[in-house]
């Protein structure tokens, strides 16, 4: 009935007909049905899973902006202060909104100057609480671990490469953290926060993350990253410093 025209993990581009047939489950919106065909709409990696005689076809984009979804963890930068809220740059096409009542966790007096809590340029770790297209994405920090970030290094990668940095069942992130000894928080918006024991390990972690970003579309990446970090540690005379 159904035919898959590309192998699992193939690179596809817009206009590629990736499958034909009816017994297919699609991961929208990056795949579209045109008649009996399934067409890719972005440059990405095709994922094909087969279960019970039915294919599940997905497409992981390799490029593209960050577009918020409720539940996403994002690292934001305060860009404007309003009377009752902050406007947060979350690298999305629409600005994040953080209400003062959410951040303070209590009622506040509108006469208060919000900049004494969060000022322009401050970094926050937040969650997307609501985003329904009609309004700008609403952020919350009312969960453990969220809030103002006061220490660490911040780097940016393409948001489309975030799933690779985290890896399947967080495998890649575990390798990164174990091998470098850094504490790493990955925002869905492609901002990554690093808290490392020393500058050498931080440098290695940054190089490793950039390597993942560059090679996101390749296979066997987790192993290569592990080897890369060990190589770097030997080179820098750190060997034996973390878990190995």
């Amino acid at each position: 009935m159904s035919k898959i025209l590309f192998e699992n993990r193939s690179l596809v581009v817009p206009g590629d007909v990736v499958a034909e047939g009816d017994r297919l489950t699609l991961a929208a919106p990056f795949l579209r049905r045109v008649g009996r065909s399934v067409v890719a709409t972005v440059v990405g990696l095709l994922t094909v899973e087969k279960s019970n005689n039915e294919y599940k076809v997905g497409l992981i984009p390799l490029e593209g902006c960050y577009y918020p979804r409720p539940g996403d963890v994002v690292i934001g930068i305060v860009r404007d202060i309003g009377v009752t809220s902050w406007l947060i740059d979350i690298r999305a096409p629409l600005p994040g909104v953080l209400n003062a009542s959410d951040y303070l966790g209590k009622p506040y007096s509108p006469s208060e100057d919000l900049s004494k809590y969060l000022d322009v340029g401050d970094v926050i770790l937040a969650k997307v609480a609501q985003f329904d297209r009609g309004r700008d994405p609403l952020l919350t920090v009312q969960e453990k671990g969220l809030g103002k970030v006061v220490e660490g290094a911040l780097i940016e990668i393409k948001p489309s490469r975030v799933p690779r940095v985290i890896g399947r069942k967080r495998s890649m992130l575990s390798v990164l953290q174990e091998e470098t000894g850094c504490q790493i928080v990955v925002g869905n918006n492609g901002r990554i926060l690093l808290r490392c024991p020393d500058p050498e390990r931080e440098a290695i972690a940054v190089l490793a993350i950039k390597k993942i970003e560059r090679e996101a579309h390749t296979q066997g990446l987790t192993e290569r990253i592990k080897d890369f970090i060990i190589e770097q540690k030997i080179k820098r005379g750190l060997i034996g410093g973390s878990g190995r």
Binding site: V13, P14, G15, R32, V39, V42, V43, E63, G64
Partner: peptide
């Protein structure tokens, strides 16, 4: 547009 990752029906 494709390089920017913007979804398209076709090139």
């Amino acid at each position: 547009l494709a390089d920017a990752g913007i979804p398209m029906r076709d090139l």
